[in-house]
Nucleic acid binder design. Structure first.
Lengths: 131, 131
DNA sequence: CTTCCTCTTCGAGTACGCTCGAAGTCAACC
DNA sequence: GGTTGACTTCGAGCGTACTCGAAGAGGAAG
């Protein structure tokens, strides 16, 4: 039994669509070393495979949680350096997660002050209505 | 009975200390219209009063929750325009609060993907230990 | 009076993360 | 063969939010 390798692949614009980044940004991520050099077709055009898309998906989560491009590059370099870097990757991600949790707490704390101010303006509105 | 106006006031560096911003940033906030022009002493030096400090405190909460400087200026302008702008202020702050809540949700969502990745690396660690 | 310190204004510089324009290549379609 | 459209690289430009350096003024202490 022979299996045909029907490797799915995406052009830069398809990949951009798939991961929610612009084509500019995808090329820039590659240039910045956030993803390994993307494979090319015979005409030199990028072909993103499923693994590339998956990794870009993770990168967008990291960016979405505020990781700096510098740290994303550090993580990407660890991944490229092979299986001997699991501990370092774990440390990087755990450090990031802790910072994100702190950030969420800070947002909630600061939001309380805003909510208090909102309640003041709501109180003024009620006064207006009662007069 | 006469009361002496013991108005507390702060130099730019004291104000910076009090609100947790740099002196550069405080001067810049004034220049950008995020606070009303700060009073000066006879030598032309800024004197921040309690109200200024309080307003700066609110501004830091707004910045801390990711409000843009442009929106902070809009809010400051509404405050300076007097009591007729309560509705507009409320609308601005409520819109902001909604965006912050969405942001917190997005952080939590994206963090789940990171946590999943962390759990994968933890699993690898356990494999190593068991071999 | 001199030194020291903090303040002033002004404009320039920095860091980050994209975002874009220009010029050119290549495959596909008519 | 010509046109179209998506792609390539390169370097430049942009928006946001500060951050800083330089030059000078003014008050307080020795």
């Amino acid at each position: 039994m022979t299996t045909v390798e029907t490797t799915v692949s995406y052009s830069v614009s398809e990949a951009a669509e798939a991961v929610g980044l612009s084509t500019y940004t995808l090329r820039w991520y590659e240039q910045e070393g956030l993803v390994e050099p993307i494979g090319r077709d015979s005409a030199g055009r990028r072909r993103y495979n499923a693994g590339d898309i998956g990794f870009l998906g993770l990168l967008t989560k990291l960016r979405g949680t505020g990781m700096s491009v510098a740290d994303m590059r550090r993580y990407a370099e660890l991944v490229r350096s092979g299986t001997g870097t699991y501990d370092a990757r774990l440390e990087l991600l755990e450090g990031h997660r802790d910072r994100v949790l702190e950030r969420i707490d800070a947002l909630k704390r600061d939001l309380e002050a805003v909510d208090f101010k909102i309640s003041m303006y709501r109180a003024y509105q009620c006064q207006e209505q009662s007069s």
